[in-house]
């Protein structure tokens, strides 16, 4: 696992579904969740919503 350029061993015990190449959130040496790269789209959707567009982001995530 590469963390900001540093390579470190991370346990996959709590996230067995992750595959090589996935971006994951790490806490205390354990991979905890696969990161979906949708932050930017969500922000744009929210800005559009503030300007009167209908809500497109799911209320409770995907």
């Amino acid at each position: 696992m590469e963390l900001s350029g540093v390579t470190r061993e991370v346990s996959m015990m709590l996230l067995p579904e992750a595959k090589v190449g996935d971006h994951v959130l790490v806490h205390a040496g354990f991979a905890m969740q696969i990161v979906d790269e949708k932050e930017f789209e969500e922000m744009n959707a929210l800005l559009a919503e503030m300007h009167g567009a209908p809500r497109t982001v799911n209320e409770l995530g995907s």
């Binding site: 709590l14 067995p16 905890m32 799911n58």
Partner: peptide, 22 residues
């Protein structure tokens, strides 16, 4: 008064089931 999720990139409604089970 609703629960909303603005951190959908890593927070799923079901969380991390393996972690919860462990």
């Amino acid at each position: 008064a609703k629960i909303e999720n603005e951190y959908g990139s890593v927070v799923k409604p079901q969380g991390n089931p393996t972690s919860l089970a462990v």
